[in-house]
């Protein structure tokens, strides 16, 4: 199994672990950690797509010809996308944690089933 395939499996593992946590674990903070894992898995998946075995980092440096660079560099588009998506993931997480703190202050528990059971 080559490196790219292994990384793809890792991203799949992250997504499945995260989905499991987000759906089945009752504790709010752990749900949120699970969601962070889903986002991490999606980012890893995107980065894997651009990988090129035996290639170079997609930064154009002196001494490279444009043709050689185009043939050998990793694909930079997913990397540019993932930069944005990491930041989005972090901000979503921050908002969720803030909401979790407010909810804890209101209900005195982090258990989702107890929290949502309170409303009629």
């Amino acid at each position: 199994m080559d490196f790219q395939m292994a990384s793809l499996f890792a991203s799949g593992a992250f997504i499945i672990i995260g989905l499991f946590a987000a759906v089945f674990i009752d504790n709010l903070i752990k749900k949120i950690i699970g969601i962070a894992f889903i986002e991490e898995g999606a980012n890893l998946f995107l980065i894997c797509l651009g990988y090129k075995a035996g290639g170079v980092v997609p930064i154009f440096m002196l001494g490279m010809s444009a043709d050689w660079f185009a043939a050998n560099s990793a694909y930079p588009l997913p990397q540019a996308l993932v930069l944005t998506s990491i930041v989005i993931g972090a901000s979503t997480l921050a908002v969720m944690l803030a909401l979790a703190m407010v909810l804890y202050r209101k209900h005195g528990t982090l258990s989702v089933s107890e929290m949502m059971g309170d409303e009629k």
Partner: peptide, 28 residues
């Protein structure tokens, strides 16, 4: 990410997911 030929993403990831996110969770 670094090994997958994405060094700038690796830097961001190390700072955000490696440091900021755990600190946020720990604070919460």
């Amino acid at each position: 990410f670094q090994l997958l030929l994405a060094p700038d993403v690796a830097l961001t990831q190390a700072i955000v997911e490696g440091a900021i996110v755990p600190v946020f969770i720990a604070l919460a």
